[in-house]
Design a protein around this nucleic acid. Structure first.
Lengths: 202, 202
DNA sequence: TGTAAACTGCAAACACTGTTCGCGGTTTTG
DNA sequence: CAAAACCGCGAACAGTGTTTGCAGTTTACA
């Protein structure tokens, strides 16, 4: 059910997961799906929550419930690690970026995810709303990077008018330089975290 | 045409702007719209570009072509000002966040917007791709803030199980503290800019 | 074991979406 | 005045999510 939806979404994006498509993938009729779910949004919510479960139990069994609090590093390291796993998840299922754009009531795995984030942020002396803001911003930045990675290429600025847009034209006149920036993701996140969860006395 | 679409979108979101709705708002039939545009995505692209035009000629005539380069401040100030105007635009037309999620070929106003951004970033000694990355990230952060503002409230975590999600439950046990953070937007942007467009020698 | 209840799937229908097409009328062009 | 371009109409098509009566199967209970 949600597995079929996930497979369909992985192959053809969120638009490819229609009730009839999921139904025929399961050898059923379209209306039969409503015996198990109440709407299509329900289904994508279940799909999202299952994928979040993927990153929770990554690689092994309760593997993720472990490594964060006991690591010797700073809490920022843990958040960056968490974000990196989320980015890998978005790479595995690009439609997640669109599916989580308008979040609904979170499922159990999503709640567990928030719980883990809060546990990681436990040593941070910041008010709870600030922590929620920080979590939201981190996942937002992750989705931005995922979108940027997925949408690389199809944006064409071909032949802009040098008279109307001089700076744009000048920017494309120079030969494209390959960008070596590798740690952009981590640098962005660390800057964001210290900006959001840190007073001036830190 | 695009004006009717914008009004409809402002009232009921992007989903409310259907061909038939726009047509009846103009006193026409649905199919008649295809005399002037080739698809619905075309229409939303035109709507987006017109709104970008709003922020370009804000308040007066060619008012925006002025203030940025001659301001005495640092280039970061100019970018923050640009981002702030964009945030106000997103507040005025919340559907823009969804409409710009999957960008297509940019319209004239969007090109002018990019040109302005590049002009503002002219004194920055960074390679062109890095500047494009920075612009994309800034508008991404702006859309994140716009989304966060628009989606405040409907997310309910009512009565989470304290046994399954201890940290979440503990977070909600404490009385909610009002967050006074006001400059969060600007701090985030400044951190992002220095992280993306600055070498260690700056 | 027999019966009743619960569950599950099917096919058809409804309202809605974006989009296409052939027709007639109006306006502009030569 | 004629011809070409344009414009809007209404009907149709394929597709969407969702609802609803009907049958078949499985489960639970007495």
């Amino acid at each position: 059910m949600v597995t079929a939806g996930i497979d369909l979404a992985d192959a053809g994006g969120l638009a490819a997961v229609s009730m009839r498509a999921v139904a025929t993938a399961l050898g059923m009729a379209a209306g039969s799906l409503y015996r198990h779910l109440s709407s299509r949004d329900d289904l994508v919510a279940l799909m999202v929550d299952r994928c979040v479960g993927e990153v929770l139990s990554a690689e092994g069994e309760p593997a993720l419930m472990r490594p964060y609090p006991e690591g010797p590093g700073d809490w920022r390291d843990a958040v960056v690690l968490l974000a990196r796993r989320q980015l890998e998840l978005y790479r595995r299922h690009p439609w997640l970026v669109d599916a989580t754009a308008h979040p609904g009531t979170p499922g159990p795995n999503t709640l567990a995810w928030f719980d883990t984030c809060l546990r990681v942020l436990e040593p941070v002396p910041a008010p709870v709303p600030a922590k929620f803001e920080a979590i939201a911003m981190v996942t937002g930045v992750v989705s931005l990077f995922a979108r940027a990675e997925a949408a690389s290429g199809p944006v064409h600025f071909d032949h802009v008018d040098p008279a109307a847009y001089p700076h744009l034209a000048a920017a494309f006149a120079a030969p494209p330089v390959a960008t070596p920036r590798q740690d952009l993701f981590e640098r962005t996140l660390r800057g964001l975290l210290t900006g959001l969860l840190t007073t001036d006395s830190d």
